[in-house]
Computed example of a mutant assay.
Amino acid sequence: MQVRVVPLVALAVLLAGCAATSSLRDKSAAAQPTPIPWISATPASMLLPTPTPTQIPANTRACRAADLNPVFGGIGALTGGQLSAGILYGNRTATACVLQGLVGVKLFDGRGRQIPLTTAPADGMPSDPILVQPGTADVRAGTPMAGVAYTELHWDTHDGAGNPCVPAPPQGTAVAVTVPGDQASLRVVVSPDPLDRFSAIVPCYSRIAVSAFQAWPSPDVVPTPDPYAALAISLDVPATIRAGSLLRYTVSLRNPNTDPIYFPDPCPVYGEWAGNSSTGFAKDFYLLNCRPVKAVQPGQAVRFTMQMAVPAGTEAGTYTLAWNFAYPGALPGPPGTATVMVTR
């Protein structure tokens, strides 16, 4: 009998601990003030200042495919249900070369079969010549390096009205690109992004927008620390939400420091986005309704009500919802994340 008493006692202690924790949580929640309401104010601009172009020496040769080492830069969310992938280009050779214009793009599935594509130039991105410096072949995604070029691919994840693409598009797991003036192609494998949200290029109706070559950020420019990076962000999100309805949730901002964290005028910008391994249904930016609070005191947690439209055509499934401050040119702190199940 004694052999069985130990696990029974342990179970009783565990259940008592759970009950005590639940009771404490209920009291804590009851003691918290009503969350600050959401406002629909949006930022005037999210653009960074245009950097000064690098001077290109006269008679610098054009880059050819054999000169370049392509690296897949990951997949991220744009606004309006779009996703974006980046491809970086380092220089294998001992001399500089120039890239300018649009790459040719081919997409392949997991069995190596080419996926038919319709391509077009991406909007709003310059087409200046980019100097690719020698000795940059070890470029890595997410790591600033001077003298490296990149291109972006943009695609829709729904039909424009929030409905799934019909028929369902094939999943692209590799990309082949050709640089202007050279028919040889460079192939890169599509790898998951750092948050493991997106692992394939799945363009609705096989349409992709392609950017001109851009300059990869230089490490010489040290990002400003995000003034709100110290705030611990947590989300209280409903377990399920029906497609076509409004997702209402709460963001809690807790100050773990010994000094207050003050909000500026105007209030800071935040971004919220939702997606899974192949699609996303939201990426929006708003101004935080910070007027009622002014600052988060040491040890204090302030809650804010949020809302996000879930388009009627959103596919059923589990999505990751993320929330963070959007401070252009700054190093962000960890986002708050939660999962939500979309039903139909």
Rank of each mutant, 00 (worst) to 15 (best):
P238K: 09
P203T: 08
T250V: 14
L195G: 03
V189N: 13
G142A: 08
Q214C: 04
S234V: 09
A161Y: 07
Q183H: 10
C165Y: 12
V175H: 00
P227Y: 06
T173S: 00
P167A: 05
D159K: 12
D156N: 13
R254D: 04
V175A: 00
Q171I: 01
T157V: 08
R207Q: 13
E152C: 06
Y249V: 05
P194M: 13
G244L: 12
D226L: 10
P203H: 07
V221W: 05
F198N: 09
R197T: 13
G135K: 06
R140H: 06
Q133C: 02
P134M: 03
V148L: 10
E152R: 15
V221N: 11
G147C: 05
T136Y: 01
P180V: 01
S127Q: 05
G142Y: 13
A232R: 15
W216T: 03
P170N: 03
A200K: 06
I130N: 00
P134K: 03
V202F: 04
V188I: 11
P223K: 12
G181P: 01
Y228W: 11
T136Q: 01
C204N: 11
L186F: 12
G244F: 12
P180M: 02
S245R: 15
Y228T: 10
P217D: 09
A209E: 11
L186Q: 11
T136E: 01
G181D: 02
A212P: 05
V222E: 06
T240W: 02
V221A: 13
Q171R: 03
P129C: 01
L131D: 00
G181L: 02
D226C: 13
T250S: 04
V175P: 00
I130W: 01
F198I: 05
A141S: 15
P217K: 09
L247I: 10
V132W: 00
V188F: 09
P180F: 01
V132P: 00
D226A: 13
V251H: 07
D182Q: 04
A168M: 08
P223F: 09
A200C: 08
P144S: 09
T178E: 02
D156Q: 12
H154L: 14
N163G: 05
D196M: 13
L195P: 01
T143C: 03
S211D: 11
P164R: 11
Q183I: 10
T173I: 01
P217A: 09
V166K: 13
T250P: 04
L235Y: 11
P223Q: 09
Q133A: 08
I130L: 02
A229W: 08
V148Q: 06
I241W: 01
T143R: 14
I233K: 15
Q171F: 01
V179Y: 00
D159M: 10
T178A: 06
R187V: 08
A161G: 05
A209V: 05
A141P: 06
I201A: 04
Q183R: 14
I241L: 04
A176L: 02
D196V: 11
Q214T: 06
